Computed example of a mutant assay.
Amino acid sequence: MRIDIISVVPSLLESPFSHSILKRAIQKGLVEVVLHNLHDYGFGGYKQVDDYPFGGGAGMVMMIEPIDRCLSALKAERNYDEIIYLTPDGERFTQKIANELSLKNNLILLCGHYKGVDERVREHLITREMSIGDYVLSGGELAAAVVADAVIRLIPGVLSDETSALTDSFQDNLLAPPVYTRPEEYKGWKVPEILLSGNHKAIEEWRWEQSLERTRQKRPDLLKNFW
């Protein structure tokens, strides 16, 4: 998989891909993440990429032409499955969408900034709009990192134990059950006996019941998509 991320401040994205699981995935050649500075496609000595909104109002708007130039340059080199614009009013990003995107070959993530992009970008240049939650960030860079992380960890070979991703919260519309590790007892707080029993069938049943109960308590809204 290749993920191209377009940003006005790409340096914000360097750290997430330089550590831990994502770094190893890149080093293994399982994914290629390429950061693009939109200013490279801007105008004049200042490489302008934004301007005042028509009709007045506060804030600046990302211009269509630098974005079109960048997208055109990328699409001239390869075909992209999705061109995704990160925006607070986009489709809510979910584990189901992460699963779907992990099967793609080439993705572009366009990070919003300022007051957003010229509407014609949304109308003509992108294929999908995505939001990681009902709140506003200073830019789409953190959202792009979240989406990329959620997708990359699902690529076969990225996790040392691939079954780990299959037991994550939301994979089956349930939250993950509680987990424990050594020591068996700490300050009088004990690990549930069932987990020490060696009875794998009983343990799986317990985990299922715990997932269901945890979901009922914390996210009952998920159960409407479960039954």
Rank of each mutant, 00 (worst) to 15 (best):
M1V: 03
M1G: 00
R2S: 05
I3L: 06
D4G: 07
D4L: 13
I5G: 00
I6R: 07
V9N: 07
V9C: 14
L12I: 15
L12Y: 13
L13C: 04
L13V: 07
S15W: 00
F17W: 02
H19G: 00
A25S: 10
I26G: 00
G29V: 05
L30V: 00
V31P: 01
V31S: 01
V33C: 01
H36Y: 15
L38Q: 10
H39Q: 15
Y41D: 01
G42T: 02
G42Y: 10
F43W: 14
D50M: 11
D51F: 15
Y52S: 15
F54N: 05
G55T: 02
G56C: 07
G57I: 08
G57L: 08
A58C: 04
M60I: 12
M63I: 12
E65L: 15
P66A: 08
P66H: 05
I67M: 13
I67T: 12
L71T: 08
S72F: 07
A73W: 02
L74Y: 12
K75C: 12
K75G: 01
K75Q: 15
A76D: 09
A76N: 10
R78H: 11
N79C: 08
E82Y: 13
I83R: 10
I83A: 05
I84S: 09
L86P: 11
P88V: 14
R92V: 15
F93D: 08
T94Q: 10
I97V: 15
A98F: 12
N99R: 14
E100Y: 15
L101K: 09
L101C: 05
S102V: 10
N106P: 04
L107V: 04
L109V: 08
G112A: 08
G112T: 05
D118S: 04
E119I: 06
E119N: 10
E119M: 05
E119K: 13
R120Q: 05
R122H: 03
E123K: 15
H124R: 14
H124A: 05
I126K: 02
T127C: 07
R128F: 14
M130I: 15
S131G: 06
D134V: 12
Y135G: 04
V136K: 09
G140Y: 10
G140S: 11
A143Q: 08
A143N: 06
A144H: 05
A145Y: 00
V146T: 15
V147L: 14
V147D: 09
V147C: 13
A150P: 07
A150E: 04
V151C: 05
I152E: 00
R153T: 02
L154V: 04
V158A: 01
S160M: 03
S160Q: 05
D161A: 07
A165P: 00
D168C: 10
D172F: 11
N173C: 11
L174W: 11
L175Y: 04
P177Q: 01
P178T: 04
P178D: 10
P178N: 13
Y180V: 03
T181S: 14
R182T: 08
R182A: 13
G188M: 06
W189Y: 14
E193L: 13
L195A: 09
K201Y: 03
K201S: 12
K201C: 00
I203L: 04
W206D: 00
S211Q: 07
S211G: 01
R214N: 12
T215I: 01
T215Y: 03
L222E: 01
L223C: 07
K224N: 02
F226I: 04
